[in-house]
Amino acid sequence: MSRANKTTSQKLTLSKKQNISGWFFLMPATFLIAIMSFIPMFRALLLSFKTGVGNNLKWAGIFNYQRLGQDTVFIQALKNNFIYLLIQVPIMLLLALVLASMLNNKHLRFKGLFRTAIFLPCATSLVSYAIIFRSLFAVDGLVNLILIRLGFLEVGYNFLAHPNSARMVIILALIWRWTGYNMVFYLAGLQNIEYSVYEAAMIDGASPFKTFFKITVPLLKPTILLTAIMSTNGTLQLFDESVNLTNGGPANATITMSHYIYNLSFKYVPNFGYAAAMSYLILILVAVLAFVQMKVGDKRD
């Protein structure tokens, strides 16, 4: 009896010791996140209720938030982010899923080659691919050259000077850059599904279409949810593409929210308070959309 007591008390001190050393493992990372994310986030909230030029700030209540509703550039930026989100993300995720389920086929040859090729765009920097696409779609770029040679156009079409075609180029570029990235997540997820499930479906005569929607999609649901949240988060924060592909133009028609916040803070006469209010709106949007996606993701269980 006493012996048993002794060992439990020893165990207790031991687990206490481990508990404390555990905190040492977490400390550096936790402190850094607190100082580099949470404190600035709180300060941005305070800033968003102030107004003025540069560091010369006064309390202004909700003035900045009211101003957002009348700012046509901001409304355009918000619309653009949602256009990119609603068109690009579903196309990209569906394409990534289809490609992943094709590559998951055991009998497929050159699998590694295909996978590497499709994943390769992820290795280019955002600035680089934005500039490559900008050059490809320039008036004197390759796309126009091909369209002229094929007889579809007489002279080069300035894709980047018209709002809709400029947005289309951004969407195409985003799909090009990120499909392979999402595909890797799906391929990883598919490895956890027993291949015999697919073979059984094949023997039962299920069409590939049916197999895809009845087996692949439901079993990959957690991964799909993960990629959907990541893509939503990323799309709402688009910056590099807006700056380097179209420079927000023509006349702010393709500008994104992050790009506008940057311009307000560091390009024009700095208005940190107003920019902070705008950044808070992105924060709320990201949180709400992630919450909705998680709810929807749960429901289908």
């Binding site: 941005a44 992050s258 950044s279 808070y280």
Partner: peptide, 13 residues
């Protein structure tokens, strides 16, 4: 969930 745009200005300051 914290977008970089929201922390960028205070971090710069």
């Amino acid at each position: 969930m914290v977008p970089f745009a929201a922390t960028m200005i205070p971090l710069f300051q």
